[in-house]
Each structure stands twice: as C-alpha cells, then as structure tokens.
C-alpha cells in the first residue's frame, strides 16, 4: 500500500526545553534534539524513563509551547494530528462510539466506522461507556479514535505501558493491522526495546537527560518476518550498536 497523506516528513529540531520548578530550580529536559521521520514511516523514540520522551511528544502535539527550536509536522492529506496518550483519555460521559466520532471533523462525523470497530474487536462495545470497558478495551477505543481521524501524523505515548504483557502483545498486533491498512507517519514513545523492534521501521535512540539523539537503528525487515528468532537477532545487533541502552 502507498503511504497516504503526508508529503513533507516530520522534522524535529528542538534547541532546548527547560522546566522551572516552583522553587526556582531549572531542569533542562531536552537539548539539541533533532531527528526526522520519513513519510509513511513508523518510528519509535526509545530512551530511559524520565529522559524527556513525553516532553518531546507534548511539544509536537502543541501542548507545550515554552521551548526554543522548531518542528515541522507532515502536511497534506487530512492535515490533522492524532494521539494515543499514556492513559486512554476517553470522555467517561460519552459512549465508545461518541468518543470516536467527537474526534472527527464535523463533515466526517457520520462516516462509516464499522470496519475500524470490527478490526479492533469493538463492534459490540460501541454503545458502552468507558467505565464499562476493561483497560485493554479502553486502549482499543483510544486507538480507534486516533485512526478514525485519518491523521497526517500519529503520535503514541507508551500506549501499552500499564497493560499486562499478553494484552499488550495483542494490542501491538492490532495496532500493526490497523496501521498497515493505511500507513500513516507515526512516532511512538517507548522504553520497551522489544516493542520498538517489533513495531517500527526505525528507532531513534535518546540519551539520558538532557535528551538528545544518541543514534538511529533502522529495522529494514518487513514486519511479518520478525519472528522470535529474528527478533533476538535484532536485539543482539541493537545491543552491539548501543551497548548499555535498554
């Protein structure tokens, strides 16, 4: 399938991001962080906990404007961004389907979502409220919301971090299924190396705080070849290239 939408790549060039605490202590979270994600590419931002991955994502999502530097989001196509947050962040007072439709632009509110709900195994749960869903199902609803908008770029912030490994694994496969049907430029933050190797075309490795790019690791192998044997080979070559990371 041809990548849809994005013509311009995602380009990030953050010179510095500093937090100032209430006591006046300042912490530099990001410094000279620059990388690029090619169009239609699934990239992972891999780094140790607390190194500033989520901060980077918040800047790209436009939620944090207090930084120096610049970034460029992919343009063209729907010109929209979508995000899957660490928590599902579904509106508890709206049903699963209403949550998904509310994220759509007005002219697409009534579009047919049967296929998406079916793929994600949510067909029977469209009328449920988020409180009635398990954590895994709530993540699927969050994925459905992100993909329904047909974004030009998709950001994922450790979306499977608080799940048990089996559920997380199933959701990773679901994510790949939905993503492959319409390969969107995607940037996913994770500290889980296996997850990154399984999902991404390229891994952007970040150093400890202040975060900057340590290097890139390209996974050129198509995803359906990444069986356990291949994965452990990938793991080994990653560790050779980046000893001490993850």
């Amino acid at each position: 399938m041809q990548p849809v939408g994005a013509v311009v790549p995602l380009r990030v060039d953050i010179a510095e991001k500093t937090f100032r605490s209430a006591q006046g202590v300042s912490i530099t979270a990001l410094q000279d962080l620059s990388f690029e994600v090619r169009q239609g590419e699934f990239a992972c931002l891999l780094g140790p906990s607390g190194c500033g991955k989520t901060t980077t994502l918040r800047i790209l999502l436009g939620l944090d404007k207090d930084f120096s530097g610049s970034f460029q989001l992919p343009e063209g196509g729907s010109d929209r961004i979508a995000a899957v947050f660490q928590e599902p962040v579904l509106l508890p007072w709206r049903t699963v389907e209403q949550n998904v439709r509310l994220a759509l632009p007005k002219n697409l509110r009534t579009k047919n979502l049967d296929g998406l709900f079916d793929t994600l195994g949510l067909a029977g749960m469209r009328a449920l409220y988020p409180a009635e869903l398990s954590l895994g199902l709530a993540r699927r609803a969050a994925l459905a919301r992100a993909f329904a908008t047909e974004p030009a770029v998709l950001f994922l912030d450790e979306p499977f971090a608080s799940l048990d490994e089996r559920t997380a694994e199933r959701l990773r496969h679901l994510l790949l299924t939905v993503w492959s049907a319409r390969p969107t430029t995607a940037l996913m933050v994770t500290h889980n190396l296996r997850e990154a190797l399984m999902l991404s075309d390229r891994i952007i490795v970040l150093a400890q705080r202040p975060a900057h790019v340590l290097g890139m690791f390209d996974v050129r192998l198509p995803r359906h070849y990444r069986n356990p044997q291949v994965m452990s080979d990938l793991l080994r070559s990653f560790q050779q290239k980046f000893p001490g990371v993850a």
Binding site: L61, L63, A83, F85, E87, V89, L91, P92, W93, A103
Partner: peptide
C-alpha cells in the same frame, strides 16, 4: 487537564468543548 489536552489535539470546536468536555466535568 488531560481531557482539555485531548480536545486540543483532536481540534474540538468551542461548543463541543463546552458541551462534551467542560460541562460534564462541572456537573
């Protein structure tokens, strides 16, 4: 704030923000 951020990322309109994000929280 996470609901407001979600609404910002998904570009909710002002009316949607009031009706679906703000008022239910204030209920």
């Amino acid at each position: 704030p996470s609901y407001a951020e979600m609404a910002a990322v998904y570009r909710f309109g002002l009316l949607d923000r009031i009706r679906h994000v703000l008022l239910p929280q204030l209920q």
